[in-house]
């Protein structure tokens, strides 16, 4: 029987084009939301040594790791570990709630009940709560119908986010293994401070 090595078995990686859209383009009022779909590179690092990839909703930007000890980012990812910018995660006030439902139907963020990165082993978003790992195909699939609501690092704004796909980066080195994961997600940031999207 052919032994299929872990990393060799990873299926071909496919991407859909990254598209950014701005909603409410047809309304005369100034848009208060930032909406987009983003693909970010995250360290494939089961050993937990690498840096987190940090993201800020307000201007859809990836934050340099040098700023990890600031309130400039909202959430971070490394392998399958989610962090938010609070307590053990960072100096900010970011919190998160994982809610069942579709992204489009999630029009109101909860005003209370956010979880924070209390300690490094009690994160706001528990590992394993949002994905399924298939040991046969080695696919990480974000569970469908999970919407992340965030309270941003400044504690004053809300954002919603849905993970769409987790894909392996190119196989490099020997043994061939991915060094990065591509997380695809869509999100909406409400800049006017209300919980309504």
């Amino acid at each position: 029987m052919k032994r299929v090595l872990f990393y060799c078995a990873i299926a071909a990686i496919s991407f859909t084009a990254c598209k950014k859209t701005t909603t409410h383009a047809h309304t005369p009022a100034a848009p208060t939301t930032v909406t987009g779909t983003k693909i970010i590179s995250v360290a494939f690092d089961p050993m937990g040594m690498a840096n987190f990839t940090l993201f800020r909703f307000r201007d859809s930007s990836i934050v340099a790791n040098a700023d990890s000890a600031t309130g400039n980012w909202d959430f971070g990812l490394r392998f399958t570990t989610f962090i938010v910018n609070s307590n053990a995660g960072g100096p900010g006030s970011a919190g998160a709630i994982l809610v069942d439902g579709t992204f489009d139907a999630a029009t109101t963020a909860p005003s209370t009940g956010y979880a924070y990165d209390t300690t490094t082993s009690a994160r706001a978003i528990k590992d394993g709560s949002w994905y399924t790992y298939n040991p046969t195909t080695h696919a990480f699939t974000p569970n469908a119908g999970k919407v992340f609501f965030f309270k941003t690092a400044d504690g004053l704004h809300y954002a919603k986010m849905e993970l769409l796909a987790v894909d392996y980066g190119p196989l490099v080195g020997n043994p061939p293994s991915p060094s990065i994961l591509y997380y695809t997600f869509r999100y909406t940031y409400q800049s006017n401070g209300t919980t309504t999207f």
């Binding site: 859909t16 779909t37 579709t102 992204f103 469908a144 119908g145 769409l164 796909a165 695809t184 869509r186």
Partner: peptide, 15 residues
């Protein structure tokens, strides 16, 4: 109404 599916191509999520 707790099981969703997300189309791997269109990323449309539905019940």
């Amino acid at each position: 109404g707790k099981v969703y599916k997300r189309d791997p191509v269109t990323y449309q999520t539905t019940l």
